[in-house]
Computed example of a mutant assay.
Amino acid sequence: MVRRDGQIFYSLMFENKTQIPLDGFMIQLNKNTFGLAAGGPLQVPQVQPGTSERTLLPMVLFQNIAPGPPNSVLQVAVKNNQQPVWYFNDKISLLVLFTEEGRMERTAFLETWKSLPDSNEVSKDIPSIVINDIDATIERLSSSNMFFIAKRKNGNQDVLYLSAKIPRGIPFLIELTTVVGVPGLKCNSNYNE
């Protein structure tokens, strides 16, 4: 999944390793946490043997929501006129859901964080990530619609506070804790259902 100009697309590449041309491609997505569904038919030209074709399929949200606890699995079925249905699982990146309107004012961020129940907080340690430059990290996160709120020092650790929103205006409040140049990142996030 990719996000471009506020729209979510499913970026797909079809590679033909058979001896015959393939055409008539269709796609179906199973129910999923965010109700992601195709925003139209799959547009793939005929794929000749030994070649490949890329396409961007526009996606819509909240069309086919799966019940149960949230997860990032996307079950996909693709077929064409010459072959049986191909089934595979993909992952939904939360980053593509972050909208361009995710910036919060500092006071609103603090009030929202304090008002959310502890049960809405998720914590994850990511031991392999190394942050070497805080400002470059903030800029990179901003390009993914994660907006800088504040920074503080806690001993030798840098703590960053960021905001993001997914569609329907659901805010994500994010706290990242790291030691510059040392492997390891702790991420606490709070969300308002």
Score class of each variant (00 low, 15 high):
P69C: 01
Q28I: 14
A108D: 04
Q82I: 13
K17D: 09
L160G: 04
D118V: 03
V2H: 05
Q7H: 14
M146G: 07
V44I: 14
F109N: 01
F88N: 14
R106F: 08
P45S: 02
F98D: 11
P127T: 02
F34S: 07
P69G: 07
L176M: 12
S115P: 04
R140H: 00
Q43N: 15
A66M: 04
L160R: 01
D5V: 13
Q48V: 12
T55K: 13
S119D: 13
S128K: 13
F88C: 15
L56H: 02
I129R: 02
I8W: 00
L160I: 05
G155A: 00
M13H: 09
I8R: 01
V73C: 06
G39Q: 04
P117Q: 02
L141A: 04
N190H: 14
I174V: 05
D125A: 13
V96C: 06
V85Y: 15
Q75Y: 07
Q43G: 12
N16V: 09
N30R: 06
M13S: 13
L36P: 00
I170A: 01
Q48K: 12
G181S: 06
P49H: 08
A136R: 11
Q19D: 09
P171W: 05
A108P: 00
F88M: 13
L12K: 03
K124Q: 07
A136I: 14
T112Y: 01
P70C: 10
Y191D: 09
Q19G: 10
L56N: 10
P183I: 03
A37W: 02
E139R: 11
F25A: 03
F62G: 10
C187L: 09
Q82V: 11
V130F: 06
K165H: 02
I126Q: 02
N154L: 14
V182L: 05
F172L: 08
S143D: 14
N80A: 09
I166C: 09
N120R: 12
G169R: 03
V2G: 07
R4K: 14
I20T: 09
N16A: 11
L61Q: 11
L160F: 01
G35R: 00
I129D: 08
E15T: 14
P171K: 02
E105N: 07
K165E: 14
T99A: 09
V60N: 06
Q28E: 15
Q46L: 10
L110N: 00
A150P: 06
Q75C: 03
N81K: 06
S123E: 12
G184K: 01
K124M: 13
R4W: 08
S119K: 08
S143E: 15
E121D: 04
V73Y: 12
I170W: 02
N120E: 13
